[in-house]
Amino acid sequence: MQLTNDPETLAPADCSGVCIFAEQRHGKLASVSLELLGEGRRLADALGQPLHAVVLGGGVGPVAEEVRHYGADRVHVVDDAALEHFQAEPYAAALVAVVRQVKPAILLVGQSNVTRSFVPAVALALGAGLVGGCTQVALDDAKQNLVQTRPAFGGTVFASVLTETARPQIASVRPRMFEPAARLDAPAGEIVAHSLPDDAAPRTKFLDSVDELGDAVDLTEAEVIVSGGRGIGGPEAFAMIRELADALGGVVGASRAAVDAGWIAYSHQVGQTGKIVKPRVYVACGISGAIQHQVGMRSSDTIVAINRDPEAPIFKLATYGLVGDVKQIVPALTRRFLKG
């Protein structure tokens, strides 16, 4: 083992502008990237400085082209076969190289398993600060520092954090916090091609991947989520949950109890040890609302809870509480929403 040497830090005086990481998965731009382009533009305009976007991947020309429609002044692209399937080492090396050239004052990334797997290494290599899981970012009065606000303890307290001495200020932002950038008909912004640094060959090897969600969108980006818990009674009851989700144009979530029972794959779990979600509408069916579940869904815009126990903790969070049997209420809801 060998320690990495002290990082060569960027001089704050040399840094300006806002850079966002435009994450793509399988050639599709993650929706959080559009949110970052929207927020990045607002920050860049407030600073009177440029907005940069970075696209990493293999064969991502079309994605970079698409990013040009969302208002970045410059779209930096590292297009390399080594980046085709996500691996932490080449991604980190590529982003570090781009940041060293662009020298942004602010770097925004969307919180995802991809960014959480490599951005901490980027921060380390740059000797920069990283604030994870932000729900809000804003410039301070002097427009010197980015006030990065994030929840802690499962959202029971919020903390505002500054990165005063190091640049870039790296903030990882949760999905669905910002208004996405609007798509412009005409592409703008120039593409800047970068090459992958020579020493970026990964030591890990990507073998293959297994998709457990099928065509459904990822929960963290979903507008509507219908979740089933132990109270739905068994694996077959997820058919009824899925029907309601379909009727609402949403996707299926679950409590840990349902996942642990083997009724549905872990990728659907919402909560402290699952996904943190913020849909427009969250429907909790037969879920008691344990604190570990609440942590994952309490910031949803509207919460609907269906539970036969009127004392269930979930009702404390619920915008609309329906006391009764899920087996009767869920199909009734499906029928009503299908009717439109």
Binding site: T4, R116, A123, L124, A125, G132, G154, T204, Q272
Partner: peptide, 22 residues
């Protein structure tokens, strides 16, 4: 849980110059 930064492991690996699988 309290911080949920999910960054210590990745940064430890980077610091040690080791590959990391998250």
């Amino acid at each position: 849980f309290e911080g949920a930064t999910a960054s210590v492991g990745v940064a430890v690996a980077a610091s040690l110059g080791l590959p990391c699988v998250t």
